[in-house]
Amino acid sequence: MSAITALKQENIFVKLLNVLTMMASRPSGLIGLFLVGFHIVLAVLSPVLVPYDFTAMDSQAILSGPSARHWLGTDNLGRDILTRTMLGGQQALVVTSVATVIAIAWGGMLGVMLGLIGGWLENIVMRLVDAFLAIPWILFLLLIVSVIGLGLGVLIPTLAFFYGIPVVRMSRAATQDVVALDYITAARARGESRTTIVKKELLPNVLDVLLVEAAMRWSWMLLAFSSLSFLGFGVAPPTADWGLMISGARSFMSFAPWAVLAPVVALSSLIIGINLSADALAKALGIDRAQKTPV
């Protein structure tokens, strides 16, 4: 078997490391990777790091400003804002990253299939995709969440479904671009089986596009998730969640701005981090991302 492996290029970890190094070679990419990494580490470690329980109310300090006891102050129920901000990204990160993976998986597969098959089936599905995209995303999410109810069991599949739709379009276009190239024609003329062509020739070349797409979808999904929470259709109180925290603290923001600012900074830094990373990833893989519309 060693003979075969020698034919292959360097293994996947080396490749990953290469891409990461390339991403980090620009300051914006470095900042992006740092922000994303920081938030992931925080989400994992914060349950042991936080100074208080996220539901613990301090009746001595209600809407109190930053102090030695509460570094970032407290909210209207006297809960520690630092604690809640540190924990507030957990749900969002888990839900959106799982949903992103599912969305890219199904959207990518369907797109590749359509790009390969073509014909009337492709036409019909693409019409459907267009139709779905014509309905504002938030309306759809709201409708489903409001009728079926809250909870991760609903949110993950809903987000994954809805955000997979633009991925279908993307991966179909990417597939069609690759299929037009001579090395696919060569494989077909050689008589390779369809699975081999897809697995060996097509996917490695479409994967780049999907990877960038995944990073982008992730940031849109975070945006949608926190918007839903903010509107009261996401996770339920008293869970610590940025969107929920912002909406709760809004009424007091004229005299307790810290309660709003802490989750705002946390949420924004994560989304900006993902976006900067996505840009850097696209540049590292040689894909221009700014050319793309959000849909």
Binding site: S227, L267, S268, N275
Partner: peptide, 23 residues
């Protein structure tokens, strides 16, 4: 542009209210 594009609408709206209305 990256900031304006990525910050959720409810965040930017809230900040706008905070600055121009509350403060």
């Amino acid at each position: 542009a990256i900031f304006a594009m990525t910050i959720p609408e409810f965040v930017s709206s809230t900040l706008l209210i905070l600055v121009f209305s509350a403060w």
